[in-house]
Write a protein that binds this DNA or RNA. Structure first.
Lengths: 147, 147
DNA sequence: CGAATAGTCTATTAAATACATAGACTAAAT
DNA sequence: ATTTAGTCTATGTATTTAATAGACTATTCG
């Protein structure tokens, strides 16, 4: 499962992406609109900024803006950034590779093979979905629901 | 990531499946061979027994045996049993469905849509891999490595 | 300039979960 | 009856997750 932190990050990004046209967006606005504890959200947005996804302005008329295009922000990246590895075992993770302490031979581990297949399929999906697509899909779903 | 508990469960089952021909297998044997803390392993095997995957005999010549055929034990089931949901958000889980507290409309949530796609792909793989296949794959990998 | 605004940084805390162990108890074999 | 081996109840410890407090810094605007 995603941590709340990761879910908050995704929700906040989605919100910013939706309102990205004009002025910077306030932490407090996102906090209220998305029901995210403000102080917690602050640390999350900072992390996203440090990663280069967001940019910020201090002082009056300040707030957060996207620093990348929505189509260049994918959810796999966000999840890895906040929650760490997506793979179920460290020995099949690209970004967080680490041998399993208990295993004697990684190359011949049957379980690892299965986990590798899973990782492959998972990454393919998560690295394909961008913020832009999430926003677009949401609009589409809302439209088709009205009819 | 899988918890250690789930990994231990999978390792232990694999070990039992490999040696399932004859006599029951001792907790202490699995513990030593697979480097799993014995007391911790006890609780894990009990859980697997209560779920109907293993059976046990007490007293001398006792130990654990499979209660289902290796081909009928799939790793998705084990992981769900020990670690809970495989889906990244509760609102797309079959077995552990629960609405996301923060979300206002599940039906039009773009993020949920992505998570649904992911869940679909993940389950397909995890519910396809059985213990039998894990064991078979391991043998195959060992063989091809010798050459 | 200086007051107000809004993000940034450091530290701490509460609660939950993961991991593990201790010890008494029960059932079966010889 | 004794030994063996799983079962049950309880407890402990460490780590992670979620959240909060408060001082600090940069920017805008009158």
């Amino acid at each position: 499962m995603l941590s709340k932190k990761a879910k908050y990050a995704l929700k906040a990004l989605e919100y910013i992406a939706k309102h990205n046209d004009d002025a910077p967006i306030l932490i407090s606005e996102i906090s209220e609109q998305q029901n995210i504890p403000k102080k917690f959200l602050e640390t999350i947005l900072l992390e996203l900024k440090k990663d280069g996804i967001l940019q910020s302005r201090k002082g009056k008329n300040g707030g957060y803006l996207l620093h990348k295009k929505p189509k260049d922000i994918n959810i796999g990246h966000i999840i890895r950034l906040i929650d760490g590895p997506i793979a179920l075992v460290p020995c099949v993770s690209y970004k967080f590779y680490h041998p399993c302490s208990e295993c004697e031979n990684e190359a011949t581990c049957g379980l690892r093979y299965a986990m590798q297949q899973l990782r492959e399929a998972t990454s393919k999906i998560l690295d394909r979905f961008s913020l832009a697509e999430i926003v677009r899909k949401e609009k589409e779903l809302k439209k088709s629901r009205k009819k």
